[in-house]
Amino acid sequence: MSGAQIGLLAFGAWQTLLLTLGGAALGLLFGFLGGLARVSDVKILRAIGFVYVEFFRGAAVLVLAFWFVYALPMLGWQLEPLFAGMLALGLNIGAYAAEVVRGAIQSVPSSQYEAALALNFTTGQRMRRVVVPQAVVAMIPPFSNNIIELLKASAVVAVVSISELTFNGQLIWSGNGRAASVFGGLLIMYGIMAVVFTILMRLLERRAALSVGRQPDPGMWKRMRRRAEVSA
């Protein structure tokens, strides 16, 4: 493999990382807005949240990306391709995240609401200081699934010519014709990225569990060590 090809792959991996992180940031924003809207007392907000979730869960990332890149310019808005990709990913994953946020908020025991009420917290204080900090802990495990889905979905935007990992892989392949090593290599690179994201999210999960005074699940190493001690 030549230096230029390694450069292309490295740049592609960097763009994939940007797409994933940018998409995750937008998805988190849309997810919280959508999820909070769905548990709101205001009927119109609940309706907006519902329509957002149903529409963007139904629309595939590829469809959104196609539309942003090829159709939207006809209406006079030309988005930067990378941003169009992030937006498509963020809107889609945000709809899934909104359901996670809703579920997590609803899973906070009602006694917590009652306690906040008894202490005369305002609605804003109750959400900010009591409900959301506990709900966030429950959100992290499903979010870590979402981020792997997002990483995989980021490959899809290669179809609209955003030069991320898969697109650059295709470029290299059309140059050297070595399908097996190029596509096999891409799969391995994505696999490694997925493992890294999973480990990082697991660390975050333990952090968050500790921060509200919960005992996190023992990690793999600790479990193995404990097993070794028992058998010794």
Binding site: A158, Y190, V195
Partner: peptide, 15 residues
């Protein structure tokens, strides 16, 4: 499960 379907499709179709 943790790698993109798109790349798997390329693999199946071209490799």
């Amino acid at each position: 499960r943790s790698t993109p379907l798109l790349v798997q499709l390329f693999f199946l179709f071209y490799v």
